[in-house]
Design a protein around this nucleic acid. Sequence first.
DNA 1: GCGACAG
DNA 2: ATCTTGTCGC
Length: 269
Amino acid sequence: MHPIHPDFVPDPSLSQAEMEELQRDIAEVARFEDDLGFSPQGIARPGDAPGVDQTTLSTSDDDPTDPPLVAGVDQAFVDDKAVSAVVVLQNGEVVERVSAVKRTEIPYIPGLLSFREGGAILAAFAELETDPDVVLVDGSGRIHFREAGLATHIGVTLDVPAVGVAKSLLCGTPERSLDETYPEGTRIPIAADDSVETCPDGTVIGHALQTRQYDSPNRYINPLIVSPGHRVSASTAADIVEATADGYKLPEPTRLADSYADEAKATVE
DNA sequence: GCGACAG
DNA sequence: ATCTTGTCGC
């Protein structure tokens, strides 16, 4: 798939002020409400029996009743090269995977991640033949100083529903401390605060989601930070991550993209 | 000036 | 993100 908004493609040569301005434009186009062509409950796991015998039905390539295609995207780095990998799953099974390599042109700057990694990500999506129904992006979406994190930037640019999946909190205030140990399934709303300069304080911009936790003892797992990227609400974003998690902290599409990016590193010189 | 900050 | 040994727990 290719950018539907060429003017939003991240340009690393912009000044920091120009990058921030572009993010504000993107945030205005972003929709943090559900606009999906499927229900999160329709996301099957590996081993789940199809609800209908697909083999006896004449299905078109994009039948809306087909189980959704869920993509995960992640990056690995080798010197000044970024390797982006996209893995697409349906019914919990891999149906396509692609990767692309691009030189990184700027360092990591909190708040401007998409200008470092976005180019490689879009290059990988350009190689993709299938059309995912939703994309899980490694990083923040609406949980961002200007509500335009990596997941939002990618989602809006490609006009595809997108969810941000991060391992730590960039900004915003959790309704409860994230330093405690919570059981699996726990969702803690993240509210906008003064650091989120584009929306009213108190707006729920995402959740901390405990996708996995140890049963008892003295060791614990930190929650995932999930936020809407584009065309999904905060609660549906969490639903989607929960539906694609399968015994690990990270949802399957993200895990597989992560390891595929690592694999693809060996291909780079 | 100080503190905080996805990957 | 990346560099890396040991160590904890089921």
